[in-house]
């Protein structure tokens, strides 16, 4: 029975992967900027599904929250603010399409060939059956890694590495500061320009 043989993990992977790829292609082919944004939201959400499927539930939630939520709202803001009839559809010359498609195809070919070149990558995890998605509890570990403690790598012999080097405290801090700077910078860049009234005009 076909259905009985279905590997549900693979099934959902296929589902989300098709969604992600399909909507990504939708982004590519659509000329309406708002629709592109919508397709992108769907693609990113499907990617989040892929993340959940791969056991990275925290990253998936993060993807939904920040990427899909935050970024896309920002993007849609931009879309709406700059969307006028004449800007929504901007035709690209056919030659460039062909060129881009050729280069992209070449790239895609390289990547796909590469993906199947290493046997280890194409071999499923032999213990996959014994693992459950519901068991993926990496949130605590990620949180600990952010404050510099690697719970998942306790076997590291080097005490120094275990103590500090293996954690992600410094990158976390850097990214935090970076975000702050970016927020201020973006607010500054996008601030409303005050028009100076010409005297007498």
């Amino acid at each position: 029975m076909l259905l009985a043989a279905i590997n549900w993990h693979s099934f959902f992977f296929l589902f989300f992967a098709l969604l992600a790829c399909g909507f990504a292609v939708g982004v590519l082919v659509s000329t309406n900027i708002v629709r592109m944004a919508f397709y992108l939201v769907m693609s990113l959400s499907a990617t989040a599904g892929l993340f959940f499927l791969a056991g990275a539930e925290f990253v998936g939630a993060m993807q939904l929250m920040i990427y899909v939520g935050g970024t896309m709202v920002l993007l849609i803001f931009g879309v709406m603010l700059t969307a006028r009839e004449r800007f929504i559809d901007m035709q690209t010359p056919g030659g460039q399409w062909v060129l881009a498609a050729a280069a992209g195809g070449l790239f895609f070919f390289i990547l796909v060939v590469n993906a199947f070149q290493v046997p280890d990558w194409s071999t499923p995890n032999p213990h996959q059956d014994q693992l459950s998605i519901a068991e993926s509890k990496t949130t605590t570990q990620i949180g600990a890694a952010f404050v510099g403690v690697r719970l998942d790598r306790p076997e590291a012999d080097n005490a120094t590495q275990r103590a500090g080097m293996s954690g992600y405290l410094l990158p976390f801090e850097i990214v935090s500061v970076h975000l702050l700077v970016v927020l201020i910078g973006a607010a500054y860049l996008a601030r409303a320009k005050r028009r100076v009234d010409q005297p007498g005009s």
């Binding site: 460039q96 060129l99 881009a100 280069a103 992209g104 070449l106 390289i110």
Partner: peptide, 17 residues
């Protein structure tokens, strides 16, 4: 801008090859 992107793509592919 778009040509630059294409250059990057082609350049990366060439480097890879």
């Amino acid at each position: 801008l778009r040509e630059y992107v294409l250059f990057i793509m082609i350049g990366a592919a060439v480097i890879y090859m």
